[in-house]
């Protein structure tokens, strides 16, 4: 049983969490070799956040995925599935041996997340749908007097969706301070750089009534500090704007001009793994 199951998280062991993030990157690259393609850049970018959540901040129990008082993590960007499967395997929800089935026919680990996978709370991928569900979950848990919190990841691209702003207004109106929004601002979407004028994201969230912090999403100390600060129950929903680097941990992927969907040949793969080890 993880130490975080029944007690609030204590001081973060940043070095250990960095090791966890490295493990998540390694697992993702292993899945990439099997499939040869995927949303790797985003997955590498969000790896530190997932490590901080699943190995420090979340109260959860991989042996009991339906525990009613578990904290919920909702991944809105279903195409980050490769990162989710990595963390679910590392945390014990999935067997690591299953990871090579990522994206293959008949697999429980599809290219976009569905709630058929152990540990996946909602269907992601239809972007703009998860934050509203997170608000509803937070309302229901609060109604029950549950100590559980809800963490909802979504991306800067999803700020294009009007429904995201509906949910932001709803969360503030209902004062769900058991909800933490994690906005992955990696600056890319399907057609290239984020298109419409979404900045300044943190100022907008603050103006919408969210208790907002902004951090380097690949800085583990900053991440864990922001998560700790977001535990306050003051009647305001929490938001953390994560400035992440697509491909973080592998400079050759960071350097790719078109990083939304990446193909990795077998020849490239070994080099990427060398870079990953050199940059840990």
């Amino acid at each position: 049983m993880p130490a975080t199951l029944t007690s609030p998280p204590g001081t973060a062991d940043v070095a250990a969490l960095k090791d966890r993030a490295h493990e998540l990157r390694r697992l993702q690259m292993t899945m990439t070799r099997g499939k040869g393609e995927g949303y790797i850049a985003q997955g590498l970018g969000i790896a530190d956040t997932l490590a901080a959540l699943y190995f420090h901040e979340l109260r959860h129990d991989p042996a009991d995925p339906d525990w009613p008082d578990r904290d919920r993590f909702l991944l809105s960007t279903g195409h980050y599935s490769i990162a989710m499967y990595a963390v679910l395997a590392a945390a014990g929800y999935l067997d690591e041996d299953e990871l090579p089935t990522y994206g293959l026919n008949g697999s429980r680990l599809p290219m976009s997340t569905f709630d058929i996978t152990p540990g996946i709370e909602v269907v992601g991928g239809s972007l703009g749908q998860c934050l509203g569900q997170a608000v509803g979950m937070a309302l229901g848990l609060r109604l029950d007097g549950s100590p559980a919190r809800v963490f909802c990841e979504f991306s800067d691209g999803e700020l294009d969706e009007g429904s995201t702003w509906e949910a932001l207004m709803g969360g503030a109106t209902f004062g769900v301070d058991n909800l933490v929004a994690l906005v992955d601002c990696n600056g890319i979407q399907a057609d290239g750089p984020v298109t419409v004028a979404i900045e300044p994201v943190a100022d907008k969230l603050t103006a919408f009534g969210w208790d907002t912090r902004e951090v380097d999403g690949n800085d583990m100390q900053a991440l864990t500090d922001a998560l700790a600060a977001s535990r306050e129950r003051d009647g305001r929903p929490k938001a953390i704007v994560l400035r992440t680097t697509p491909g973080s941990g592998i400079p050759s992927i960071v350097a790719r001009p078109r990083a939304h969907f990446i193909r990795v040949t077998d020849d490239e793969w070994a080099g990427f793994m060398d870079e990953l080890e050199a940059n840990r």
């Binding site: 909602v122 934050l131 509203g132 509803g136 309302l139 029950d144 009007g162 709803g170």
Partner: peptide, 28 residues
Amino acid sequence: PDRFWNVGMAEQNLIATSAGLAKVGKIA
């Protein structure tokens, strides 16, 4: 009144919020 919410003129959010409530055990 403690089990009722008006989300305003936001039908997508109405359905999403209802879904979230359902996924923590409510009938919305």
